[in-house]
């Protein structure tokens, strides 16, 4: 217990310290990786811990992005209330989708979430008058201020991303150690047995999905505000596949895995694109290699070999 607390607090401390030493390019990259790792953390709650294989999480990410972004575009409410609205949008969408989609399971659940997400994507295009469709829109720098702090400045951006990431990471660590978090895992392992033990598995899965949706929206809204852009490509299928990849690479059902996977994938593409145009080839081979040689993902492999009770 304390060992894992040290690990996660240590990661947070290292990331904080990196703020002061990283060269500008890496500094910006880590800020982005932390923001997107929050998305992966959100996905991991549904997929890694509760076993809900969703292929539609981009709709929650987009709900946060557009919930915050559209309010900033058309009102003067300020970044913080808009951010809160983005979270609320993600939660509400997750609740609505969950009520319907959780009637299914397994591959059907995957397809239903994929379909709902596709409908959200098309709706963003359909309401192009407000959303500017695929082109998206820029969020004015005047709207990207919290209490006079300009979030576009590298330091502020990094620290806000770091703060968000830290909260999400510690929340997940706390959640998986609570009884409800353990029931999520029980549902993943054997839903029938969990039900026999008297748990209302539908309600718990819904809870898991809503938490997951809110955290995914937190990432989307943060991306919009920190990086100043909202666009429909973030609601597309790829952005539903990405968190799954990040989580599977980093280690599904681990707290630290989503961050590791996001970081790994980012640098895999960034570094290999410096070597060759064919970086997708390298990414593809790396993915295949990981499934062959580290099937539980990075953190899963650590857990399997060295650290049996890594959360």
């Amino acid at each position: 217990m304390s060992r894992s607390l040290i690990l996660h607090l240590g990661l947070i401390a290292v990331l904080f310290a990196l703020n002061f030493v990283l060269p500008p390019y890496a500094h910006g990259n880590i800020a982005r990786v932390m923001t997107l790792a929050v998305y992966a953390i959100g996905y991991n709650i549904a997929f890694g811990y509760t076993g809900l294989l969703s292929l539609g999480h981009a709709m929650f990410f987009a709900a946060g992005m557009y919930g915050a972004g559209l309010l900033l575009r058309f009102t003067d409410m300020g970044a913080l209330p808009a951010y809160a609205a983005g979270l609320a949008a993600g939660g509400a969408l997750a609740l609505a989708v969950g009520l319907l989609a959780l009637r299914t399971a397994g591959v059907s659940f995957m397809i239903v979430t994929l379909m709902f997400s596709q409908a959200v994507y098309l709706a963003i295009l359909y309401f192009g008058e407000w959303t500017r469709g695929d082109e998206g829109f820029v969020i004015a720098s005047a709207d990207r201020m919290i209490a006079g702090v300009d979030l576009a400045a590298p330091q502020a951006r990094y620290l806000v991303a770091w703060g968000l990431f830290s909260v999400a990471l510690m929340f997940l660590l706390w959640l998986v150690r609570r009884p409800s978090g353990r029931v999520f895992v029980a549902i993943r392992e054997n839903e029938d047995r969990a039900r026999l033990l008297g748990y209302d598995t539908f309600r718990l899965k819904l809870l898991s999905l809503v938490i997951s949706g809110v955290i995914s929206a937190a990432s989307g809204a943060a991306y919009a505000i920190l990086f100043g852009y909202a666009g429909a490509s973030f609601a597309g299928v790829q952005y539903s596949i990405f968190p799954m990849l990040w989580v599977l690479l980093g280690g599904a059902g681990t707290v630290i895995g989503p961050f590791l996977g996001t970081l790994f994938m980012f640098y895999l593409i960034d570094l290999s694109s410096g070597l060759t145009d064919a970086y997708m080839l390298i990414a593809g081979v790396a993915l295949i290699g990981l499934t062959l040689f580290a099937p539980q993902g990075i953190a899963g492999e650590i857990r399997r070999r060295f650290w049996k009770d890594l959360p």
Binding site: I241, L245, A286, I288
Partner: peptide
């Protein structure tokens, strides 16, 4: 075969395959 047709790993592996095929076709 080597990943034993594990459902989740198959998804990742075939996504990898997808990237490889697309890139080779592009080249």
């Amino acid at each position: 075969k080597r990943i034993d047709y594990d459902p989740e790993r198959t998804i990742v592996a075939t996504i990898g395959l997808l990237y490889v095929i697309q890139q080779v076709t592009l080249m």
